[in-house]
Nucleic acid binder design. Structure first.
Lengths: 195, 195
DNA sequence: TCAAGTCTACCAAGTACTAGGTAGACTCGG
DNA sequence: CCGAGTCTACCTAGTACTTGGTAGACTTGA
């Protein structure tokens, strides 16, 4: 495969940067790490992304965009339950690679990231919450979920639990963690309370 | 107040280090930050803690110990629900200060911490899970919680959700997040399913 | 006197970032 | 078609600064 150049190299940097950020942490990876990975000098990376904050913000923006695209694919699934299961799979995939959600990592290093990055992270979580709220609402309307739920509360819970489980899975290193936590919540959502 | 010295200074460093680690991140705070905070030169901090890993590990160990002591206090509360509510309050207190759970932060920066620190973090989460499992078991036995539960699964869920909520609370900056997520789970635990 | 604690003064290595330049591809008037 | 100018992409070689960590001298209380 030919060494990429120009805009292709720019993309390469974004992809490698995302991987490094998810495995090492947003504040932990350096232009030197990136340089080694993509095969150009760190000074040349500065040609594409003048400041690290620019790079990180664009990585976050790209991440949000890709995640959004995957959510839109999931929307084609026939049931709300299947859509949520697909959502769980997105997190499980991340854990399998030993990674963290990019924005979870950014949230943990909140004081070390710039304002423009923070805005992207906020937007990411807002989108996630909105999407989950929507899926749960529709699932309630269709009868897949029990009727007493508060969609945005359940969405918050699901998101928090998955982000937390991603964190814990690393420590206890087995990826089943995320799936188990998710399944537990799904059971709660689909079970009718009696009192 | 007189400037502490000797072992008192050592404790001072541990306390300040914990605060910095929780607000900035374990890998983000430096001996320089610590120096400014406790009023001695960074070289003098090295006298007490030769390597940063030594310091961070001891901070984590202390954190785990203090947390354990608080759990033992909570055990004196009359009901399992009240014990869990106390547990929630521990997390809410952290969020109010704009901090992260120390071990949550460490988990997020997993690749940047040393092995001895990792062991402390693992032990912390194991203890949390064990305590929660225990409380939920007893709550089931006493009839406070519904009978179909799997205590260790619920414990995992609760811990993951609280850690995740702590993360998200920072981004969306309002501390109510943790309480809402917790209350949602508590409702699930105390509601009898009908099918 | 002695040892614990703190200091000043370093260091090597790493950080993000910059200055200045080169090779090659593209543009465009004559 | 040609040459001058321009642009992109990358380079070498640095800047200024921070990092954790070390060596050795000074201070001070017991």
């Amino acid at each position: 495969m030919a060494k990429p150049t120009g805009r292709a190299m720019r993309d390469e940097i974004l992809i490698a940067g995302q991987e490094l950020a998810q495995s090492m942490g947003v504040a932990e990876f350096s232009y030197a790490d990136l340089s080694e990975r993509v095969g150009i000098r760190s000074a040349s990376i500065h040609h594409h992304f003048a400041k690290k904050e620019d790079l990180v913000t664009e990585i976050a923006s790209r991440y949000r965009g890709n995640f959004g695209a995957q959510l839109r694919e999931l929307e084609e699934r026939p049931s709300s339950v299947e859509q949520l299961e697909g959502y769980r799979d997105l997190f499980e995939e991340t854990v399998t690679k030993g990674d963290l959600c990019l924005c979870g990592s950014a949230a943990a290093e909140w004081s070390a990231i710039g304002d423009s990055t923070k805005d992207e992270v906020k937007a990411f979580f807002a989108e996630q919450t909105r999407w989950l709220t929507d899926v749960i609402s529709k699932g309630m309307a269709s009868g897949e979920f029990s009727s007493g739920l508060n969609p945005s509360e359940e969405a918050n819970l699901l998101l928090a639990a998955l982000e937390g489980a991603t964190l814990l899975a690393r420590v206890e290193n087995h990826g089943a963690h995320v799936g188990r936590v998710f399944d537990r919540i799904l059971t709660f959502l689909t079970t009718q309370p009696s009192k």
